[in-house]
């Protein structure tokens, strides 16, 4: 069954609406929430940190490579790397990694539960399957993404500083001076908002794809791929919208 985008949007909003309705049933998903926070947040920490450290380091190296004029102080590297990390890379790198890691897993889990009738079994028992399966994942995404974002920024900026220092591009003191010179207190707030929206986008889109899986093992595979791709696309869209409205 091929659904056109408008129908999909309708079903997606319907699912979100039902999920909102299920939020007050805290007892249903309390345990699951901790479990999902653990899986989405804590377990994703190493890969997010790794990617963030590399993107911070690469940004430093490339910025210093492009700064050839002796008139420009080296501290400019810090003024470029830190806001890049805070405004864009911290949230987007985390987002892309989690679209693959978390998004695909959510879709595969829920898709398998759908095709093996586990979701039906939950419903048949009298449980709110959306409340039990989707709400904890989306809340975990909303709560843990900003946490991962902070970790990514911390490690990314640290990585940039270390590479700048060890590679002889810019001493740490100058890096920090440059970063401070152009630091806007709203930037990290914007990053937090962004990561929160990304967390919501990735988890809700993946839940949607997984929850409405049809067509056996192949359907699960399709849902998984679609979840990762759709998460990335909507993440970029949300990125643009947020930048246009909040900056």
């Amino acid at each position: 069954m091929v659904l056109n985008p408008i129908q999909s949007m309708g079903r997606y909003s319907q699912l979100l609406f039902k999920a909102f309705g299920a939020v007050p049933e805290f007892g249903t998903y309390r345990k699951k929430l901790w479990e999902q926070m653990m899986r989405i947040g804590v377990d994703s920490m190493p890969i997010v940190m790794l990617a963030a450290a590399f993107s911070g380091a690469v940004t430093t190296v490339q910025t210093s490579y492009q700064l050839v004029s002796p008139l420009i102080p080296k501290s400019i590297i810090g003024s470029i790397v830190v806001p890049s990390m805070i405004l864009e890379l911290g949230a987007v790198v985390t987002g892309f990694i989690l679209a693959g890691r978390v998004g695909a897993r959510i879709a595969a889990e829920l898709g398998t539960m759908r095709v093996t009738e586990q979701i039906d079994a939950l419903e048949a028992m009298g449980l709110n399957s959306i409340g039990y399966l989707i709400v904890p994942r989306v809340i975990a995404g909303i709560v843990m993404f900003p946490v991962l974002y902070v970790a990514a920024c911390f490690v990314g900026i640290g990585g940039g500083m270390m590479v700048g220092h060890l590679g002889g591009f810019v001493p740490i003191g100058e890096f920090v001076d440059g970063a401070r010179e152009f630091f806007q207190p709203f930037d990290p707030i914007f990053g937090l908002i962004k990561s929160l929206v990304f967390g919501f986008t990735i988890t809700s889109v993946s839940c949607f794809k997984g929850y409405y899986t049809a067509g056996g093992a192949e359907g699960v595979g399709r849902a998984t791929t679609q979840a990762a791709v759709a998460s990335c696309v909507f993440l970029l869209l949300a990125d643009l919208i947020l930048a246009a409205t909040l900056l």
Binding site: W34, E35, M37, M38, G41, V42, M45, V82, V143, M144, P146, V147, V150, A151, C153, F154, I157, V176, A179, R180, F183, P185, P188, L192
Partner: peptide, 27 residues
């Protein structure tokens, strides 16, 4: 260690890093 504890510690650590980090760059 229970999930609750791990998650809680992670969130608290991140909050502390966030606040200190912002203060650090705000000079």
């Amino acid at each position: 260690i229970s999930n609750e504890l791990k998650v809680g510690l992670t969130i608290i650590t991140a909050t502390v890093i966030f606040i200190l980090g912002v203060r650090y760059f705000e000079d």
